[in-house]
């Protein structure tokens, strides 16, 4: 039930980082999906397509890693590992 909320938070952070680093748009994003995050890569892509519309991240390439360790401290979350901007 919190998918859109997580994506909105992510879009806010990405927009903030893009501006901070003088990016024109986001080319790619690398993320880890926690084992207990309730996201599969396909599920995440569907929400991302919707949440990124009209933002600097629209059309960005996603590199997603589905984690399997339920004891990982970030198992319930989505971790943005890196961002590639067009400068």
């Amino acid at each position: 039930m919190h998918e859109m909320s997580v994506l909105n938070n992510l879009m806010n952070k990405v927009t903030e980082l893009n501006a901070l680093h003088g990016g024109k748009r986001v080319i790619s994003m690398k993320l880890r999906l926690g084992a207990l995050s309730h996201f599969t890569p396909q599920h995440f892509r569907e929400h991302f397509d919707f949440a990124s519309r009209g933002t600097v991240a629209e059309g960005a390439r996603l590199e997603l890693t589905q984690m399997t360790d339920e004891t990982d401290p970030d198992a319930q979350g989505v971790v943005l590992e890196s961002l590639e901007f067009e400068t």
Binding site: V79, S82, E84
Partner: peptide, 23 residues
């Protein structure tokens, strides 16, 4: 941390945990 190809793109390492926001 940053790495960049001048004039083209820049990659930054972030490690940011996305959080649930109030809706």
């Amino acid at each position: 941390s940053e790495s960049s190809e001048p004039g083209k793109s820049k990659t930054i390492k972030v490690d940011y945990l996305a959080r649930v926001e109030g809706e």
